[in-house]
Design a protein around this nucleic acid. Structure first.
Lengths: 290, 290
DNA sequence: AGCACAATCTAATTTTTATTACATTTTTAT
DNA sequence: ATAAAAATGTAATAAAAATTAGATTGTGCT
């Protein structure tokens, strides 16, 4: 399978060279693509009213040396197709810059919907609970591209509560913070594709100390998810398109909004204090937008 | 399986009753739905970093009395879904008003659409042109909450081109940079409500020196827009409720994507170089997600 | 601290599935 | 019409998968 043709295409090309019974299988496969190919040989053979070995011979002619290999290829194809139907169906959309913005927004909207649709609600609620709990200390940590998101979340959390720290600089300097952590600490990690070993190490060490690890990641799930207490996964890209972190930001924003909504009574006092102080301090000399 | 809920929905409902390890499986399943479930138990278990029996227990909790039955159900579902590609995720999912996340996402989606609808194409194209022009030097500058966005844009621009600087620290230190600026400089400013006087001052000085000022702001337009050459305004809030910067991020992402698409030929070489260098440098010790 | 219970894994077992070898049938050419 | 070749199926076998039973680990509670 060196070429990039899809299996269905390959099958269509090969079709005329097939024997009559093999064609039966081919037809069933194409008519119910790719689901039929994900069944067992026996099931597929039954559907095509053909024997097992015939199916196997067809598969072999397609260039696979085992039925398992064939199924794996089918699944891989399917995975790509399901992940971004929009990009898949008309890639031309993103080319014409006349309406680039519109189509781009449409795509991101779709990614956002997928993100929301796939996210278990307990995960979301769990994150909000942990971040809202005053007894906990919060530590944030991001990767190269996601550190801005960590910073963004940090700013918002600081408005709402105390004990929030954004870990910056070199990983070695975090050891100091790490040794003090315990079960009342929450480590928020942002880790998206091109996963970063450092994040995993830190998460593992933290988890060992009963620290609650919260992970913001993409749909392919950073390895950190194995030790994370809660994982929020955003759909960030299709295969051929450009990555976007907007859906991830949606999650961050939603968490912030949920925190605010849920704990409005508790935080409103604090908000006013912060406001007052900021007014007295800042006045022009420092950055102050909201 | 008498009811008509999809397996994914069923899983989401059940999620909170699951044990921690079972949830791992659930997450993998949902994140890669439904392909992950079409693999063998062993493969799925491996993906979720869990043992086979755990997978099986989850499946049993879902109401299936064999893994095979589960897979058959998945395939049936998939077959139906693939037949009507337009009915993507069951719309019922998006209607559940009780779900905070869903309604929040719906609202942001609307804000994003408004943003796109109101944004003049020339503005967008102008920004992309200016940022893509190699002769220009780019300077970025954000406010308290928007600085992460500036940082994010900065990272992406640096991948694509040279002469990109994110201005940090205290405003007074920027004077050095400012005196050198001229008509081949581009100053990108992020300024949203609670507009910041400092930003206006800097923008005015820059504009006087023929610097092109690009402004990312909210729908009420920062005063900087008066001196800005191009302004991209995002709708960041509804009448009641909490602000969100997600639509602003959409704009940033769209600009990046447009730049990449438009100049693919020109930048692909550069990309490879950057990749090679990063590979030689980073290797574990530094932050490295993408 | 220690007991009870839940969660999870390991490893053995059973069942299913893919694969192979070979027999039978069908087709084709003379 | 018949022999040779191709196509296809049957049945045995090997491989892999699912399933189960029991051991082990971890957790909460008194």
């Amino acid at each position: 399978m060196s070429n990039s043709r899809s299996i269905a295409e390959e099958l269509r090309v090969l079709f005329e060279t097939l024997t009559p019974t093999e064609r039966k299988v081919g037809r069933v496969l194409l008519a119910n693509y790719p689901v039929a190919g994900l069944e067992t040989i026996a099931q597929l053979a039954l559907r095509a009213d053909v024997s097992g070995p015939t199916v196997l011979r067809l598969i072999s002619k397609l260039g696979f040396d085992s039925y398992t290999a064939f199924q794996t290829a089918l699944r891989d194809e399917l995975e790509i197709r399901l992940q971004s139907p929009l990009v898949r169906h008309d890639p031309a959309q993103l080319q014409g810059d006349s309406d680039f913005l519109v189509s781009y927004a449409a795509r991101i909207t779709q990614l956002m919907q997928e993100t929301v649709a796939h996210l278990p609600r307990v995960e979301f609620d769990g994150v909000v609970d942990l971040l809202g709990e005053r007894k906990n200390r919060i530590w944030l940590l991001g990767g190269r591209l996601t550190d801005p998101l960590a910073a963004y979340l940090c700013h918002h959390l600081k408005v709402v509560r105390a004990d929030v720290v954004h870990l910056r600089g070199v990983p070695s300097s975090w050891a100091d913070s790490l040794v003090d952590m315990g079960k009342h600490d929450v480590l928020v990690i942002f880790d998206i594709r091109r996963y970063w070993d450092g994040a995993l190490h830190i998460a593992e060490m933290a988890a060992q100390r009963k620290v609650s690890v919260l992970l913001f990641t993409d749909q392919w799930l950073s390895p950190v998810s194995r030790v994370a207490r809660f994982t929020l996964a955003a759909h960030t890209a299709g295969p051929s398109g450009w990555d976007t972190n907007t859906p991830l930001m949606l999650l961050v924003d939603a968490v912030i909004a949920a925190l605010n909504t849920r704990q409005w009574a508790a935080i409103s006092d604090r908000l006013q204090e912060v406001e007052a102080m900021r007014a007295r301090l800042g006045e022009g000399s420092h950055r102050a937008d909201e």
